[in-house]
């Protein structure tokens, strides 16, 4: 390793760590999740659940089971092989705005939204 290797790796690591810190700092607690399904242009909302109400929800005809408890949401079941390291059930719990869990095989995405999310709550934006 030469000095410029260390500089290059240092710069990459600095960008990575600072972007991580920035993103963490500006995350806000969300209030509900929206589940969307479909590829590309066909993506549409199939369900929305409040994060303040605990419960277990079967999604997409039972391919995935979403659990909400204590203001956090996570996937407890999915019909992909359980040892799949990329399985959505391995994803950490989500609770803050824009955090998402994607179930790749089923084209299903769960995303957290806040109270003031314009696109999905147009009334509030106009107000």
């Amino acid at each position: 390793m030469k000095i410029r290797d260390i500089i290059l790796i240092g710069v990459v690591l600095a960008i990575a760590v600072s972007s991580f810190v920035l993103v963490e700092l500006f995350k806000q607690d969300g209030s509900y999740v929206i589940v969307t399904l479909g590829e590309g242009e066909n993506r549409h909302e199939i369900a929305r659940y409040s994060l303040s109400k605990d419960g277990e929800y079967s999604l997409n005809g039972g391919t995935n089971v979403l659990k909400i408890e204590g203001g956090k949401a996570w996937m407890i079941e999915a019909n992909c092989p359980q040892n799949d390291p990329q399985s959505c059930t391995k994803h950490s719990k989500i609770s803050r705005v824009n955090e998402s869990i994607a179930c790749l095989p089923n084209n299903l995405v769960v995303t957290v939204y806040g109270d003031d999310m314009g696109e999905n709550n147009p009334d509030i934006v106009l107000g």
């Binding site: 590829e39 590309g40 993506r43 998402s100 994607a102 084209n107 995303t111």
Partner: peptide
């Protein structure tokens, strides 16, 4: 692919 910009938070 998923039309979800929020996934960039990963």
């Amino acid at each position: 692919w998923y039309q979800t910009a929020g996934l960039a938070l990963e």
